[in-house]
Design a protein around this nucleic acid. Sequence first.
DNA 1: ATATATTTTTAGATTAGTCTAAAATTTATT
DNA 2: AATAAATTTTAGACTAATCTAAAAATATAT
Lengths: 218, 218
Amino acid sequence: MTSFTEENYLKIIYKLSAETESEISTNAVAELTQTKAASVTDMLRKLSEKQLVNYQKYQGVRLTELGEKVALTVIRKHRLWEVFLVEKLRFNWDEVHEIAEQLEHIDSEELVYKLDEFLGFPKFDPHGDPIPDAQGRMPESGYKNLSEIPVNQSVIMMGVSQHSATFLQYLAKIGLQLGVEICVFEINDFDKSLTIKIGGANDCFISTEVAKNLLVKT
Amino acid sequence: MTSFTEENYLKIIYKLSAETESEISTNAVAELTQTKAASVTDMLRKLSEKQLVNYQKYQGVRLTELGEKVALTVIRKHRLWEVFLVEKLRFNWDEVHEIAEQLEHIDSEELVYKLDEFLGFPKFDPHGDPIPDAQGRMPESGYKNLSEIPVNQSVIMMGVSQHSATFLQYLAKIGLQLGVEICVFEINDFDKSLTIKIGGANDCFISTEVAKNLLVKT
DNA sequence: ATATATTTTTAGATTAGTCTAAAATTTATT
DNA sequence: AATAAATTTTAGACTAATCTAAAAATATAT
């Protein structure tokens, strides 16, 4: 049995692992869990005893196969609940993250199965993130970051890799939503910021920080 | 802010208060929370400091107006989620209690409002229990226990006041479901057990214990 | 390559919720 | 009304998750 707190640690280690090849540092985990490094050390030892992570002190941490499976079932529940909140309860996509953070820990396999069925077995959440299957396998979306797209190529926006309300509201303001066509017009050599055309219409300037969080299909 | 645990205590004190006029005893609370009396004493002191209950040591406990309101919003959430589980996810009414025990603690007013709307503002949960309104007011259902009904009167089954899977499965077995007509045929003087006719069809013998948990409309 | 800075871990405390065993209080019995 | 029985509270301890401050290990920089 994994506690609410343990599940949050596993989820965060999973997310960090997706961004880097190497072991995850104590500090990186502390930052995302909003705790202190000392607390993380304690928890890593505990997760290690439960065979959920591989951890050697001072050497960082990695999920075991079991730990990854637990993380993916939590992420699966999070994303299914987000679909429910947006599709059925008519929340905006920038309002659902906090609520899904709570719902993702509800413990009932039967519930997850029936929710999935009720939603029509969705493959993506409202932010374009793929939903892991019931066996805890994450499908490959194959999407790229907008920051990797060369000048003059046109792409379709398929998702975001950051779910904060402020970020999503900013996207709404400049007209970026799932499905729109984006054409990279110019990339500034100095800071890699870009000028893009959205849906053939308005020109727009965005930072590389924003571009990195946009998932697109070529 | 009230914790998960505090909410459970308040809910249980509320339920006990509905059954008795006098103060609720420490032991009664301990039994329903599945904890020891010593733990209850600690929690009652804490709830008292938070103005959620009136508590004098050795004299039992009562909810304050504030405490009752918190209890009722938890019960509201519990019952709304039960409607969701049965109406939308197609669970049986004997499968939803445990899951709703978890869902009732999800904290988001907006969520409760939208869920209520999505369900069409239901007035009763799948067990026939009235759903408190958003202001934390419990509607009077006006239903009676089957055990109070005199011989030869016909009534309609409207709810149950016990939600354990075993009880509900027993009801299903003998053909008792919401909406059926029940006619009290005979009341045994000795133990108050009754013989009833269900839906004009099969005769059936039930204990007074069962009758006390059946809510009916005359 | 040694000193300095950064990161991580240890040690010891804290809070919420629980427990057992013993003491205090209330209730019931004769 | 005194005593026995039952209930309730106190005292002290435990676990999970957190913290601060200090010590240890690793990484960086001259």
